[in-house]
């Protein structure tokens, strides 16, 4: 059986600064003209990354130093706007496996949880310190621990060879939606199986609702 638990994530981080970055900016609506999520990764932040002539703009997702990063670091109210799951799907398919930020829009956070992409929050000062740190040193390894709710940033020790040694640089506490956390720790973030388990109770609840029978007196 596949282990679907998500206890911690470790990897390099990419900072995308700015408050209220909406889902239209994460994935513009024209890329929603599709019947699968395949290929969305290449279009993540498309109009922030390229101008109308297709020339690269200054955006972290374009920079060589951040390629292969798995942790996205953002600011306030990230993912506001449309309910399109295409937004977290695009980030996931670009390579993002967890997001840490100051705050997240409700629907976006729920969509992330549903696809196994943890979103965690921390106070502004901590988030900004982490962004500044990885901007200066993109080799920093960031660990987001869902069990202890801590974020730790570590620097590779120079001359460590292939068997890298790391020294801690920054550590701060994280918060996250407790129900989402429980689902990641238990490996039940894909909710379909647990919902389907309630079979009879679904029918009982439905039977008690007057509109289900058309209010027939």
């Amino acid at each position: 059986m596949i282990d679907t638990r998500i206890l911690a994530l470790r990897g390099r981080a990419v900072p995308v600064r700015g408050d209220d970055i909406d889902t239209d900016r994460i994935i513009p609506a024209r890329f929603l003209r599709c019947v699968t999520f395949d290929g969305l990764g290449a279009q993540a932040f498309r109009d922030e990354r390229f101008d109308e002539q297709g020339r690269e703009k200054d955006h972290p997702f374009n920079k060589a130093r951040y390629q292969g990063s798995e942790i996205l670091v953002v600011n306030r109210n990230f993912g506001c706007g449309s309910s399109r799951e295409h937004a977290p799907q695009a980030l996931y398919r670009w390579g993002i496996r967890a997001i840490v930020g100051e705050s997240f829009a409700d629907i976006f956070a729920g969509n992330c949880a549903a696809i196994g992409l943890p979103v965690l929050t921390a106070p502004e000062a901590n988030v900004r310190a982490l962004q500044t740190l990885v901007e200066a040193e993109p080799d920093i390894q960031v660990t987001l621990n869902l069990e202890t709710l801590t974020c730790r940033a570590e620097r590779p020790v120079p001359g460590g060879g292939s068997d890298h040694q790391y020294e801690p640089v920054l550590e701060f506490p994280l918060s996250m939606n407790e129900s989402h956390r429980q689902k990641f720790l238990a490996g039940t973030w894909d909710t379909l199986a647990s919902l389907a388990n309630s079979g009879d109770r679904i029918a009982e609840t439905a039977a008690a609702l007057p509109y289900m029978k058309g209010f027939i007196p």
């Binding site: 699968t36 309910s83 129900s179 429980q182 689902k183 679904i202 439905a206």
Partner: peptide
């Protein structure tokens, strides 16, 4: 009136009376 169960995560399982769908978010 719509709660079916409380799930182990602490979330509620809610019965949905009306599900509206359109072409953009449903094919997947």
């Amino acid at each position: 009136t719509h709660r079916v169960a409380t799930l182990p995560s602490g979330e509620d399982q809610l019965f949905i009376g009306l599900h509206l769908i359109h072409e953009v978010t449903s094919p997947q």
